[in-house]
Amino acid sequence: MLDITDESLVAQVKSGDRDKYELLVERYESKLNHYATRFLSDNDAATDAVQDVFIKAYINIQSFDTSKKFSSWIYRIAHNEFVNILRKKKSLSVSFFDFDTFFPHQVEGEGSDMLALKREDKERVEKAISKLEPKYREPIVLYYFEDMKYDEIADVLLIPVATVGVRIMRAKKLLEKII
């Protein structure tokens, strides 16, 4: 079962084999739980939120295009769910336009130096991450802890790839100050 892709499993769920959804839940529950715990900084809210993510993903499973990546799709659902929770808690302001996404940016891309730095920074970052505002906390969580690339993060957050770079760069500067 391990060699079956997520997308093949979704195709089977879509055609009526609902038990295959359990494999998808097992593959992502730990990852999403970590993502939720770090992003929401609230363990109890994280558990309920992840449960809701899987329920919403199942309800909307027929809308998933199996030619695309399932991981980006479920992380996108998770992002929406978590952002809604933060908005309800008033930890995140509602804004229609984010100037980070409005203007084009020229940012250093992902290189081998940065990946090396990633491993060294991980522990320090984990300690300070809850002090970052959600806008900067989320790309850091996805990049450092979910091992996503910039373009994958862009697909989850629906922002330009360069904006992902800008937010990670700013978040790192903020973290340096905090640490």
Binding site: Y21, V25, Q51
Partner: peptide, 29 residues
């Protein structure tokens, strides 16, 4: 966390198997 994730999996699959959660049809989308 592992214990929590097991609980999530059990709750979600139980709701699906008992028909408590039904997916929207393709036509809906």
């Amino acid at each position: 966390i592992e214990q929590t994730t097991r609980e999530i999996s059990e709750k979600v699959m139980s709701a699906i198997r008992t028909g408590g959660i039904l997916p929207h049809s393709r036509w809906y989308f």
